[in-house]
Design a protein around this nucleic acid. Structure first.
Lengths: 186, 186, 186, 186
DNA sequence: TATGAATGAGACTTCATTCAT
DNA sequence: GATGAATGAAGTCTCATTCAT
């Protein structure tokens, strides 16, 4: 048995189930049962189901952010870094297609508390600054930063979606898609 | 007040509420109450809640398709037609932000029946052929057609979303966004 | 089977159970089961358990009021009318000791909605005016009317309680008690 | 701040909350939180929630009894002693409206253990004997002693309640009320 | 076509109490 | 004495859907 405490065990189970079934179709009873804790334990750690959803979402989103930033070298050119980030994201998305959908689902969900949104925005600051610098350098088009970020994420979603649906792992194709996204931005 | 029949009134209310609250958080009872019809009436017109959302989705999507195709001249170049379509879509989205959000929200919803999906695909054929021709002409990048279409729609969503949030009607900005999308595609 | 509709059947059962067990110890599930209706039916007629409690309370209280006013002759002297009312109340209380306790229990309950309180006050107006007239005639002591009414009800409660506990039906004793109350008031 | 120990702090908080919300609507968790002790601490001092209310009730009632007996002079006439007692009670009630309400609310609560009831009865013996003597002397009406005691307490409750609600401190009024109660008894 | 009372499975949440630390 | 995470039975309420009128 892993040495995970009950709260973490609940979050882990919740993510797994939300990803598989969507959160509206995942009763708290199922989460507690599969976490092997009592119903009361879940509500001891999370006042409401929404609070659990928020925390689970935050955890998933932070995982993705960390993944995107992996192996980034600030000495590389903006374009190369962008390429790396897109690729990181797509590869993670292909390995975790359901988690990717899960994150997408939540983007405009009323379940996410404003506190959680704030924490996510803090994590997004890194990307915000990256784009800002790119615009200043003229490597990235002078469009509103929020627009660029949102759009980039949406494009990655389409990409992962397509690759997943067609079960394609064609490296050339992925490269072409990434370069298409870079065309959009620069 | 328009002389809308009960069925249309129900669809209109449903879209409004689904967008505001999400599908799972909108009881049919609320839809019927706000439509000023009896609960039985809703189920008289739509066998199930899923059938209601499927019909609503189909209706919204077809309206959008018609709008995008408006004033298109086949004698124009592919690029000019593309520009017109993007612009048509964005303008419609700005005029109908709720419907646009609704379409976005339910793009990959498990509640939309496969029959409805099939009908939508039939309507999408026009755009599919448009892209196909563009690729043959080499005006559009040689990427999978489904990917291009999905991506294009996602980009328009981001765009409408951004413009709507910032309440911007800046024509120059819209033009830049449209040209960015065209860069992506060509 | 009685020709009572479901709503009335629910109220009747609720009063019976609230009286026997107290309302905090009476689950809505028991009420619906003993009323032979579905859980949903109870909540179709009463939005919340509190709404049911309020209506049940109102019904019991109005029954008592009607009972107190029974056989009253406005041509009688104030004292004779008072005597009749006290006696009516005590006899009803002895016949319905549980209902009497139920009413008492609720007097300052937070479960009773303000709408219900208003309706009860309307019904109490009769007694208010009776006391007012008595004070003007100098048959009743010049003390605040609300005070007199509340006190009178409390005294009747003590009386019913005592008689019930000791299982006494001693007519002489009851008469003495009534005359004691009248002494208090006049 | 007084240097109250945890047990007393719990009782004090419990009384306050029981009066405001009722027994059934006051979770032990709220009591421990507002007392700034852990949940376990509450159950360390009181085996069950019922034991807590029993102890709180006993404590409040004994405090009241002591207060009523204050400054009593056995050489005074029964009437004068009665007057003093009524006045003592009313004044205490006005100073401690919450405790007074608490006592009233739980007079016939099934949650008070029979052991506690027995202890209270022992304390009531003083008043029982006082009334008994009064009846023998013919200063007090020949009615059942328990009835007289219960009724007297109920009347004081009404009185305190009225004075508290109207925020009246009118000495003349209080005197009239006291004399009304004495009329009832003698 | 239209109505709305009736249904009952199942959802979320509460809460007194225990126990290892 | 003091702590607070853990428990799980039981409570209130929701909601898509049906059906007699």
């Amino acid at each position: 048995m892993s040495k995970m405490n009950k709260k973490d065990q609940i979050i882990k189970t919740a993510i797994k189930l939300f990803v598989k079934q969507g959160f509206e179709n995942t009763p708290t009873s199922q989460i507690s049962k599969e976490s092997k804790v009592a119903t009361g334990t879940l509500f001891h750690h999370f006042k409401t189901k929404n609070e659990l959803i928020s925390e689970a979402y935050l955890e998933a989103k932070i995982e993705l952010f960390e993944e995107i930033k992996k192996n980034l070298d600030e000495k590389d050119s903006t374009k190369i870094q962008m390429k790396k980030m897109f690729t990181n994201c797509i590869l993670w998305g292909l390995k975790n297609p359901e988690k990717m959908k899960f994150i997408l689902q939540f983007i405009s969900s009323p379940h996410i508390s404003s506190i959680t949104r704030k924490k996510i925005e803090d994590n997004e600051a890194y990307f915000y600054n990256f784009v800002k610098k790119g615009i200043q350098e003229k490597t990235i088009k002078n469009l509103p930063i929020e627009y660029i970020l949102d759009n980039a994420f949406n494009q990655m979603t389409s990409t992962v979606n397509y690759l997943h649906l067609t079960k394609s792992k064609d490296k050339k194709l992925i490269e072409k898609m990434v370069s298409s996204m870079i065309d959009f931005m620069s």
